[in-house]
Amino acid sequence: MRALTWQGTGKVSVETVPDPKIHEPTDAIVRMTSTAICGSDLHLYNVLGMYLDAGDILGHEPMGIVEEVGAEVTHIKPGDRVVIPFNISCGHCWMCSRGLYAQCETTQVTSQGKGASLLGFSKLYGQVPGGQAEYLRVPQAQFGPIKVPDGHPDERYLFLSDVLTTSWQAAKYADFAPGDTVFVTGLGPIGQMSARIARHLGAGRVIATDRVPERLEMARRNGIEVIDFSEVDDVPAAVRELTAGRGADSVIEAVGMEAHGTPVQEFAQKAAGKLPDALARTAIDKAGVDRMGALRTAFDAVRRAGTISIIGVYGGQADPFPMMDLFDKGVTLRMGQAHVKRWVDDLMPLLTGDDDPLGVDDLVTHRVPLEEAPHVYELFNNKEDGCIKAVLKP
């Protein structure tokens, strides 16, 4: 089959690789019909190469048609249309029984001290081949795959794999009351959907910041107030000005480790990525190499006794936190990988009708064949050609 493979920092290519096969009775094989590129894929593309091997298949936002199932997979069958969650969870362990699917004890990557295995996401999370390919082997398929109905194009349901469920969790973790003001840092796909979901769940006002014109315009047409941080010297001050000097009741930090505005940490991050793998892993483990600009904005923009929901991905072990300010303000922090299947029942009714209350149909900007994936990675990474969300069609 053909698959998008990591070949080095800033380099991916589509290669011919062996077709996946059933290894366990809990496996399934799914023929991909759509698979998206995520901002987290750019972390692998740019920063976390020390945890990858040349030839690793990327991608964790897949859907398609079931081709084959193992003997213990009974809730799906060949011919079913399914979305695959990005985290691999068993559904029956202690963590899963509490809805904490991203911490599944059956698939935890204990050798790395990490939570549940993830599709297409490096040695840190199990080095499981991902879904930017023609076919995908799905572990723990007795629980994970989400059956979806016909009647809408793939893109209506595809983002249950990550974007929608991650954004729903981000909004839930923000813990705002009806009528509250929510501030969102970053208007990539997660920021876009987090902002829309916050409005849907009753926020009185949703403000978001970014600097990319196409992202700002997409947010505006979906009812979000925007702050262009290329035109504002002090974004938190602008948020306070919009909120009677108090700050946002809740903040969703949707950027993560590659935020703009922190040149020293950007240099450290890039330098770590150029080291030999063993030294680079030590640097990540022992140093604060994440770019903290978006987090600092969140910390400053939230009101006293407010809540910050961190959904952007971070990778440094010793990032500097302004603990005195956070303690003094009485800030609540919630964060973590999305527990995908925990939120599916909340989201599915919003997707099956014709009204599209979350504006899911207004997210994808690029639909291209799998063979064009390397070019689209460049566009997405460089924020060119209005690329906000790209879907590959194997």
Rank of each mutant, 00 (worst) to 15 (best):
A301K: 04
P276W: 13
G312S: 10
A298Y: 12
G316R: 06
A254Q: 04
S250L: 11
I252T: 00
M292V: 05
I252H: 01
S309N: 04
H260R: 13
D277N: 15
P320Q: 15
F299K: 02
A271F: 15
G293P: 00
A272Y: 11
G261P: 00
D300S: 11
I311F: 08
H260C: 10
G316E: 12
A259E: 02
L326W: 04
L279M: 15
T282Y: 00
G330Y: 04
D290S: 02
G261D: 01
K329Q: 13
G306F: 07
E253P: 00
R296F: 10
Q317W: 13
F321A: 15
V313P: 08
L275T: 00
E258N: 15
E253F: 03
D300C: 03
D328P: 06
G316H: 05
A283Q: 09
M257F: 01
R304G: 11
I252S: 00
L279Q: 15
D325K: 09
I284W: 13
P322R: 02
D249M: 05
A254S: 12
I284C: 08
D285I: 01
M292W: 00
E253C: 08
E258F: 09
D285E: 12
F321L: 15
G315F: 09
G316A: 14
I252Q: 00
D300A: 12
I310R: 02
H260P: 05
R281Q: 12
G261N: 03
T332Q: 09
K286V: 06
V255F: 06
L326G: 05
Q317M: 14
A259M: 05
S309H: 03
E266K: 15
K274A: 11
L326K: 03
M257R: 14
T307H: 01
G316F: 01
V302Y: 08
V289H: 14
A298L: 09
G261Q: 01
K270I: 05
A272M: 14
Q269W: 11
V264G: 10
L279E: 15
D285T: 01
G330V: 02
D249Q: 08
D290F: 01
G256H: 04
D290W: 02
L333I: 14
Q265V: 03
P320M: 10
V313F: 02
T332H: 03
M323H: 06
D328V: 11
G312E: 05
A272K: 03
G315N: 12
P276N: 09
P322S: 09
F327N: 15
S250K: 09
P276S: 10
R303P: 04
V313T: 13
A318D: 14
D285Y: 04
Y314N: 02
M323C: 07
A305K: 08
M324Y: 13
G316Y: 01
P276C: 12
P320I: 10
G261E: 02
V289E: 07
T297D: 02
P276R: 12
D300V: 02
F267S: 12
D277K: 15
M324A: 10
G306C: 07
D325R: 05
G273D: 11
A294V: 09
A272R: 05
V302G: 02
G256Y: 01
T262N: 13
K286E: 14
D325V: 06
